[in-house]
Design a protein around this nucleic acid. Sequence first.
DNA 1: AAATAAGTGTGAAAATTTTTCAAAAAAACG
DNA 2: CGTTTTTTTGAAAAATTTTCACACTTATTT
Lengths: 225, 225
Amino acid sequence: MPHLLIVDDEQDMIDLVTMYMENAGYTVSSALNGEEAETKLKEDRPDLILLDLMMPGRDGFAVGESIRSYSDVPIIFLTARGEEWDKVRAFSLGGDDYIVKPFSPGEMTARIQAVLRRFGRVEEKKEMIRYQTLAIDVHSRTVRVEGSGVQLTMKEFDLLVLLAKKRGRIFSREELLEAVWGAEYRGGTRTVDTHIKTLRMKLKNEGASIETVWGIGYKFVDGAV
Amino acid sequence: MPHLLIVDDEQDMIDLVTMYMENAGYTVSSALNGEEAETKLKEDRPDLILLDLMMPGRDGFAVGESIRSYSDVPIIFLTARGEEWDKVRAFSLGGDDYIVKPFSPGEMTARIQAVLRRFGRVEEKKEMIRYQTLAIDVHSRTVRVEGSGVQLTMKEFDLLVLLAKKRGRIFSREELLEAVWGAEYRGGTRTVDTHIKTLRMKLKNEGASIETVWGIGYKFVDGAV
DNA sequence: AAATAAGTGTGAAAATTTTTCAAAAAAACG
DNA sequence: CGTTTTTTTGAAAAATTTTCACACTTATTT
């Protein structure tokens, strides 16, 4: 899970952003000024820095320049509209980013994720598969449809993930059996049908996303809807 | 190959963008207003939506919000400079994008590619066969005519692919039977005729592309003629 | 040019195949 | 053991494929 360092001279802002970010699943350090920021950078080795531009003493831009001289940790500047716009923009060309206050939690996490991805620092914290109201968390093996959790058995879950991961691809029953049940399975292919049936039923409206390809097998519908 | 949905109240703009995009190798549906857009979204399952911001009735932003409530299809807003800038920006944080009119074909295709890549919609090696408004995805076994999906049975699909892959080549009924039905088929050749009939019907206007070669068999018209 | 023969289009029904569904049996798990 | 999950099974339902009869078109022969 990525770790963030928040640098701002206002404790209130730090608290707010910390709350936002911990809620989004990040761990957070903070610093009230440039010196403390550089110390924490060395100690906590954050994956990304959120750096306020307007600070007494060395301003955010100076701190950023200093950090850049020895570290390539990505920086997102927090700035009020109209503040030192050009300098931030110039800096951001290096691959960093900036967020204009006031900002929403959603905006902030989106920007952070984008920057982390760009910097290759995000070791996919969650492997999620989404389609309409269907959300599959591959690692925790949980599924939600229309916001509410759905209880799937192991075979059902594996089947769903296999199909949903490769939308549009058609799987024959034999392929599904080999992938989910294993090569040494020796039973009828009708077993697949039964599991598809229960899956469709449990997925309620989204069950229609699993389509029968007549004479061939099954597929999870392609397309963005 | 990705499929696009263009939403704009001006037919001229739709025609222009359609020409651009078909030239770039995309297939295109269009809608003149929000309602039509959402219908087409469900029917044609585009990979990306190009959505004009300035429309009478529900404006593009409202349409986008509505779509976002149930679909995560990427949206690119088309906007004139100065129009509702902030709203578009806010929306774009979700991973969508916007293009400011007037735009060049190059800019538009670049943006589309970027968004599709970001959304992981840039498919791996899709084998597509195209002819006029007919688009065949060989692997997912889906067919579109004039932008809307067409449901084919297995034999119909195999027949179509065989013919369309070798445009201009004439296949006898015996050849078609052997290739699609298999060598061990023992039935009348009139079966082919029946399937050709349903194919032509399902392909609507493009059905005329399958021509009868009197006394010999069938062929898919050659584009060069 | 008319008559004839052969080939093709079409709609409906029959035959066939495949899938779905529900319920029971078997297996796995604690 | 009792419970949950998985598999098997057979009949119903759905979809596809094939056949067939007749109308129509094209080519050939008279």
